[in-house]
Amino acid sequence: MARYGMALDYKNCINCKACESACKEQNGILLGADYHRIWVGVREIEGIFPNLSIGSSSFEPSQCQQCDNAPCQEVCPTNATYYDGNGVVRVNPDQCILCTYCMQACPYDARYVDDRTTTVDKCNFCSDTRLIQGETTTACQATCPTKVRIFGDLDDPDSEISKVLRDREYRKLKEHLGTRPKLFYLT
């Protein structure tokens, strides 16, 4: 049992989309931008050529925040969305009725409809495709060229993620909503 989280050294991100490709391959995601369990957001640069503000342009890799207090879980009428033993918010497709309420509830737009099962799906930290086989990395993390992603057990004080979170400053997305996300953006 663990409590998995991911720290993102997002300033190193080059928007190469290796993570997105790896996730699609590993987890069998339909192609199409709408089927996105992982993405890299681009903040459009400000200014007028040639006076562009470099600082204003950034790449923000993201995915399900694995909220400790997940609105998507709270609103699910059939408990199809649940917390697994590792604190990962997951979806049981057999139980999902496709009411898409979770899509309304998620503040991060982290859920999408899988057209093959016609249920709602999301990032699950590769729980069923990697962690279950004893892997200790997620597909998106392993493949990243600039090593943006640090995945690990937040409950283990010796894990790298715990250390990084102790040593470095970070922010979380839309924290004010009380979702208690487990994705940490290192600053």
Binding site: Q26, G28, I29, L31, D34, D128
Partner: peptide
């Protein structure tokens, strides 16, 4: 695919077909 996604706007209509036919399979 991506009925709404504005990406579709930029692709000429007749070219929208193909990629949607592909889906990947979960490793197991």
């Amino acid at each position: 695919v991506s009925v709404s996604s504005a990406a579709a706007l930029l692709i000429k209509k007749e070219k929208k077909h193909a990629i949607a036919e592909y889906g990947l399979e979960k490793t197991k």
